Measured scan of single mutants.
Amino acid sequence: GVTLFVALYDYEARTEDDLSFHKGEKFQILNSSEGDWWEARSLTTGETGYIPSNYVAPVDS
């Protein structure tokens, strides 16, 4: 299955590639091989962008 991640904090995008999000928003991670910045798709907005990996945690299934 796909592991979903949930935002622990609000984040405001600093570049066009970043994804702004709110605490509690859920994400599907598309690429986590880039280190501290993961490519993710928000399940709330459907938008794709980079998120700071230390702002999210796995959702307990």
Rank of each mutant, 00 (worst) to 15 (best):
T48S: 11
D17C: 02
A40S: 05
L43I: 13
T44P: 05
S32C: 04
D17K: 15
T3R: 05
E47S: 12
E39T: 04
Q28M: 10
N54V: 08
D60L: 04
W38P: 03
A57Y: 07
P52S: 12
K23E: 10
G1K: 15
D10H: 02
E25G: 02
A13S: 10
S53K: 14
S20V: 03
E39W: 06
L19D: 00
H22Y: 13
F27N: 01
P52C: 12
S33Y: 11
V6K: 14
L19H: 02
I51W: 00
E16T: 11
E39Y: 09
Y9S: 12
R41F: 13
T45F: 02
S53H: 12
H22C: 10
I29Y: 03
Y11I: 02
T45A: 04
K23F: 03
T44K: 11
N54M: 04
T15D: 13
T3P: 05
S53E: 08
Q28E: 15
A57T: 12
V2L: 11
E16A: 09
V56L: 14
G35M: 11
R41A: 09
E39L: 09
D10C: 03
G24M: 03
V2M: 15
L30R: 05
F5A: 05
F27C: 01
Y9K: 15
H22W: 06
W38Y: 13
S33W: 04
R41L: 09
A40G: 06
D17A: 09
L19R: 02
E47G: 14
W37V: 13
D17L: 06
L8E: 11
S61H: 05
T45K: 05
E34P: 08
S33R: 09
G49W: 00
N54E: 13
K26E: 13
D17M: 14
E25R: 01
V59P: 07
V56H: 01
G24H: 04
K23T: 06
W38C: 14
T15S: 13
A40V: 09
L19V: 09
T44E: 12
A13L: 02
G46T: 07
Y55L: 12
G49D: 01
W37P: 11
W38G: 01
A57C: 14
L43H: 13
L4V: 07
D60K: 10
I51A: 01
T44L: 09
T44V: 08
E16P: 11
T44H: 06
F5C: 03
T15K: 11
K23W: 02
A13V: 02
N31M: 05
L4K: 15
D36Y: 15
S20A: 11
E47R: 12
S32L: 06
L8N: 12
L30Y: 04
A7D: 00
D18V: 13
E25T: 08
T3Y: 15
A7W: 00
L19Y: 10
G24L: 03
V59E: 13
V59L: 10
T15M: 10
E16D: 13
V59W: 14
T48C: 04
E47Y: 06
E12M: 12
K26R: 11
F21N: 00
S32A: 07
W37K: 15
E25H: 04
S61Q: 02
S42D: 04
V2P: 02
R41K: 15
